[in-house]
Every structure is written in structure tokens, then in C-alpha cells.
Amino acid sequence: MSAGACRVQIGVQEAPLAPEALCKSLPVAGAVVTFIGNVRDFNAAAEVAALQLEYYPGMTQRSLQAIAEEAAARWSLCAAQVVHRVGRIAAGEAIVWVGVCAAHRGDAFAACEFIMDALKTRAPFWKKEYGPAGSTWVESRASDISRAARWRLP
């Protein structure tokens, strides 16, 4: 299946994510892989009550679209959907949702993981953590960069 036959949809929103509704919006397919990223209530030994998610209006959407289209070009998919929240997000709430549909699970698993690894290292979002001790900007992690590097084509 070519990238053209894959339905690519991306979204950036302040409203809470509705994973059940998002799942129902996916087309019927042999394999459906979804991923939900939730805000952890701890990081670097500090308690986290909430995050503030900053983004770059315009570039963030372009970046998510490019990542989803890249997945659709590399694997045989019938849908690739990414929705990311911005603004204030409480611990325990979902921050990102990815849904991938394919005829076979191999393509769906790989594409979903690729999308998350690429998003973590390429999409312009920045997290600020709020806890009892105040607020701090989250540092990028070397482990995210090495995970994303696994997908580099030779």
C-alpha cells in the first residue's frame, strides 16, 4: 500500500484526549496499534503535579504531519493518527495518543513506535514540570535520541 492510500491525521489541542473516541475513529483493519502517553507523577526524584506544554504553532503541526507521512511511506498502513495535548496537563492525564492501522501487526507496531520516537526528538514541544518545589523545564534525554536513531535508514 502506498503512502497515498494511508489516512494521515494529526492534531494539537488543549482539551483532554478522549482515547475511546479516537480509537473508534480509526478505520477497520487487520491490525490496530494504539499508544497513550500519560503524565508521570514523578521525574528525576521530584514529585510532579502537572505539566505545562509549550509548542510552536504551525511548525509543531507541520512536524507531526511530516512524521506521520514518513511512517506511511515506510510501512504499509491504512491509517496513522497523532494527537498531542498542549497547555496545562495534570499528572495521570494523557498527553499524547497515536493510532496506527495496517493489514498486518508488524507494520502497525513498527510504525507506532517510530512515530513516538520521532515525535520525542523532532516535534517542537517543551515540558515544564510543576511540583511542590516550584517549576522546572524538562531536559531532553540521551535515551530518546538513541531510540530515535535506531530508525535511521542506511
Partner: peptide, 10 residues
Amino acid sequence: VAFFPPVTGG
């Protein structure tokens, strides 16, 4: 033109 720190989304 934009300048920003390394990204930390997801």
C-alpha cells in the same frame, strides 16, 4: 526564524 532548546514532547 526561531530559536529553542531541545524538544521534550510526548
